[in-house]
């Protein structure tokens, strides 16, 4: 024979666990949307132009880039926090002529579409893994307008 108190305890436990499971299920769905920080960076050997409002890239990231690339200066053109929802592209303006669309195709794939003067130039589909705190995922390339310079799109974890 089951005691009434035992039955009551089991019922309370079951209801609480049900509540907890439902609650965390919703959290998990929200957590499925990725909060990212994207930075567009201009790499150059030139000094910072006075007429442009550019910010120097934080030293931690700039030092990492200097270890692998030849350029002396790294300026942040723009910095945006984006919430990457599955199959919803996020538009990032790189310059007046160039735009980039970042899209999460599925759990393990992102798509980066480069658009120049309104025309599709290239699309990169990239397999991804979880990014750890303090890590950077970087896309880079030559600057078409100025051969000696380069651009970088840096993806990192968005701050709290």
């Amino acid at each position: 024979m089951i005691k009434r108190s035992t039955l009551r305890f089991s019922l309370v436990s079951l209801l609480s666990l049900l509540w907890a499971t439902m609650g965390f299920g919703l959290t998990e769905t929200r957590a499925g949307d990725l909060r990212l920080k994207t930075q567009l960076i201009w790499a150059t050997d030139e000094e910072k132009p006075k007429e442009k409002k550019l910010k120097e890239v934080e030293s931690k990231l700039a030092d990492k880039l200097r270890r692998f690339y030849k350029w002396k200066n790294y300026f942040e053109v723009s910095s945006t926090n984006v919430v990457l929802v599955a199959n919803v592209p996020q538009k990032l303006t790189m310059s007046r002529k160039c735009e980039m669309e970042l899209k999460r195709v599925d759990e393990a794939t992102i798509e980066l579409k480069f658009v120049g003067e309104g025309k599709h130039i290239r699309t990169v589909r990239q397999k991804v893994k979880p990014l750890l705190q303090g890590e950077y995922s970087i896309f880079g390339g030559d600057d078409k307008e100025k051969d000696s310079d380069a651009w970088f799109v840096v993806i990192s974890q968005a701050g709290p």
Binding site: V124, R125, Q126, L131, Q157
Partner: peptide, 22 residues
């Protein structure tokens, strides 16, 4: 439950990639 979701809060680029260009 929170531990794995926090580790998914970013995208580390893996080796395999696919390029489509004009």
């Amino acid at each position: 439950l929170q531990a794995p979701s926090s580790s998914r809060s970013g995208l580390r680029l893996a080796e395999a990639s696919e390029l489509e260009t004009t």
